Simulated assay, not measured.
Amino acid sequence: MPNWKTLLLRLAGLVQRYPGTIAAFGFISGVISFLTVERHEGFARGIAIIMLVSWIWLVFEQATRQRLAQRFGWTIPTPVLRYATQLIHQEGLFFVLPFLYVSTTWNSGQALFTGLLGAAALVALVDPLYFKWLSSRRWLFLTYHTVTLFAVLLTALPLILRVPTGNSYKLALGVAVLLSFPSLADLIPLQARWRKWAVVGLMLALGAVGWFGRLWVPPATLRLTKVAITTQIDSRDMEARNSLRTVGPAQMRGGGIYAYTAINAPLGLREHIYHVWLHNGREVDRIALDIQGGRKEGYRAWTHKQNFPADPRGRWQVKVVTDAGQMIGTLRFQVEDAGPTPAGP
Rank of each mutant, 00 (worst) to 15 (best):
residue 17 R to V: 03
residue 300 R to P: 07
residue 155 T to N: 06
residue 2 P to H: 01
residue 297 E to A: 15
residue 48 A to F: 08
residue 227 V to N: 11
residue 83 Y to K: 09
residue 281 G to R: 09
residue 242 N to A: 13
residue 19 P to Y: 08
residue 78 T to H: 13
residue 29 S to N: 02
residue 298 G to T: 01
residue 84 A to I: 09
residue 278 L to K: 14
residue 9 L to N: 10
residue 2 P to W: 00
residue 160 I to T: 08
residue 274 Y to T: 02
residue 327 M to D: 02
residue 109 G to W: 07
residue 332 R to G: 01
residue 93 L to Y: 03
residue 141 F to Q: 10
residue 245 R to K: 13
residue 231 T to A: 10
residue 269 L to A: 03
residue 102 V to I: 12
residue 8 L to I: 04
residue 39 R to P: 00
residue 178 L to V: 14
residue 43 F to N: 06
residue 124 A to E: 11
residue 219 P to V: 01
residue 299 Y to Q: 06
residue 235 S to N: 11
residue 61 E to H: 09
residue 328 I to E: 08
residue 116 L to F: 13
residue 227 V to W: 05
residue 217 V to D: 02
residue 281 G to W: 09
residue 258 Y to V: 07
residue 54 S to D: 14
residue 166 G to K: 00
residue 2 P to R: 11
residue 147 V to P: 07
residue 246 T to H: 06
residue 133 W to H: 06
residue 247 V to R: 11
residue 70 Q to N: 15
residue 290 D to P: 00
residue 43 F to A: 14
residue 73 G to H: 11
residue 11 L to C: 06
residue 179 L to R: 02
residue 256 G to P: 08
residue 215 L to C: 01
residue 75 T to E: 15
residue 341 T to K: 15
residue 111 A to H: 05
residue 320 V to D: 04
residue 219 P to L: 04
residue 32 I to H: 01
residue 8 L to R: 06
residue 48 A to H: 00
residue 137 R to W: 05
residue 301 A to I: 10
residue 319 K to W: 13
residue 298 G to R: 05
residue 236 R to C: 00
residue 37 V to P: 00
residue 162 R to G: 04
residue 138 R to N: 10
residue 182 P to Y: 02
residue 146 T to P: 01
residue 322 T to D: 05
residue 171 L to Y: 15
residue 233 I to G: 05
residue 189 P to N: 09
residue 329 G to H: 08
residue 142 L to N: 05
residue 314 G to N: 10
residue 32 I to P: 05
residue 61 E to W: 01
residue 290 D to I: 04
residue 201 G to H: 04
residue 135 S to I: 03
residue 106 W to V: 08
residue 35 L to M: 14
residue 198 A to E: 10
residue 6 T to V: 08
residue 284 V to M: 12
residue 118 G to P: 00
residue 276 V to F: 04
residue 153 L to V: 06
residue 113 F to N: 05
residue 316 W to N: 12
residue 135 S to M: 14
residue 219 P to A: 07
residue 320 V to L: 12
residue 73 G to I: 05
residue 113 F to R: 01
residue 65 R to E: 15
residue 236 R to N: 14
residue 320 V to E: 03
residue 243 S to G: 12
residue 189 P to K: 13
residue 24 A to G: 14
residue 124 A to H: 02
residue 54 S to V: 00
residue 4 W to M: 09
residue 211 W to M: 08
residue 69 A to E: 15
residue 152 V to T: 04
residue 188 I to M: 08
residue 175 V to Y: 04
residue 212 F to Y: 14
residue 255 G to K: 07
residue 97 L to I: 12
residue 20 G to E: 13
residue 92 G to M: 06
residue 163 V to W: 15
residue 305 K to L: 14
residue 205 A to R: 02
